[in-house]
């Protein structure tokens, strides 16, 4: 197993140990072992149905695992609601279909979490929100509603919404798959900025250009298992498994 870029070795911020998940009788994730160091950027790829989305959704308990352990920032994910809430506040998630709240303005979308979960006063929450909106280059739309924005703009707002909670880890579930081609770049640029500022990121995506330029590790999953992972250079130039080779030949 290769070592990640070492700016900050130390205790992993996410640990998945011997994790298994079943949907009924169907074994959707098996034998998942993963240790994510702080500030590490991991890109996860694989064919559809391989379980990659399911795996990252287990990290913030949007899905439940039946066997094994998941530990996020020292807190173990169990049925305990308090632990789940603690983890969710520290882990931000960006969805394929944005999932902005259409009945709230952009600004209200961003301040919802800080006000109701972190109990931030409204003014402070709004200032933080405007700061992140500036960061994703969309501050002028603050008073508009999601229905008035394009897909690319909505996804950038979604990223800013997660950042307002000051998470330690950001999960991206195919963030550009639902976007028109001309909007993919604007979202990827925001994600690259984020990576360069040192955010720990797990990104499920097909955008291999992003993986090559930003990732510390690229991971290939198939049929619920982690087949192969490596530094991007080694992963793309020297895949070890047949399945990885097949997948890469199909998408590159």
């Amino acid at each position: 197993m290769s070592e990640p870029k070492t700016e900050n070795a130390g205790k992993p911020i996410i640990e998945i140990v011997d994790m298994h998940k079943w949907y009924g009788e169907f074994h959707v994730l098996s034998d998942i072992n993963l240790a994510v160091k702080p500030q590490e950027r991991i890109v996860i790829c694989g064919p559809s149905g391989s379980g990659k989305s399911t795996m990252i959704r287990c990290i913030n308990r949007l899905e439940e695992h039946q066997k094994g352990r998941i530990i996020v920032d020292g807190v173990e994910l169990t049925k305990d609601i308090k632990n789940i809430e603690k983890v969710r506040a520290e882990v931000g998630m960006v969805f394929q279909h944005f999932n902005l709240f259409p009945h709230l303005t952009i600004l209200d979308n961003l301040t919802l979490g800080p006000i109701w979960v972190r109990k931030t006063p409204k003014k402070e929450a709004e200032e933080t929100a405007m700061m992140y909106l500036e960061k994703v280059h969309i501050a002028e739309q603050a008073k508009k509603f999601p229905g008035q924005l394009s897909g690319g703009q909505q996804q950038r707002v979604a990223i800013a919404r997660s950042l307002c909670m000051s998470p330690k880890v950001m999960l991206f579930d195919e963030p550009t798959s639902a976007l028109d081609p001309e909007m993919i770049k604007e979202v990827l640029d925001v994600m690259i900025d984020l990576a360069q500022e040192g955010m720990t990121m797990l990104v499920v995506t097909h955008e291999m250009g992003f993986a090559k330029s930003v990732a510390d590790r690229v991971m290939f999953m198939d049929e619920g298992q982690i087949v192969e992972q490596n530094k991007p250079h080694d992963f793309f130039d020297n895949p070890q498994h047949e399945r990885t080779k097949l997948f890469l030949s199909q998408i590159l």
Partner: peptide
């Protein structure tokens, strides 16, 4: 864990009893 062969000798695990049936 990463580069081991897994296609053939894959152990078939059953889900915990309290979850199915």
């Amino acid at each position: 864990m990463g580069n081991e062969s897994f296609s053939a000798g894959r152990e078939v695990l059953k889900p915990p009893v309290t979850q199915v049936g």
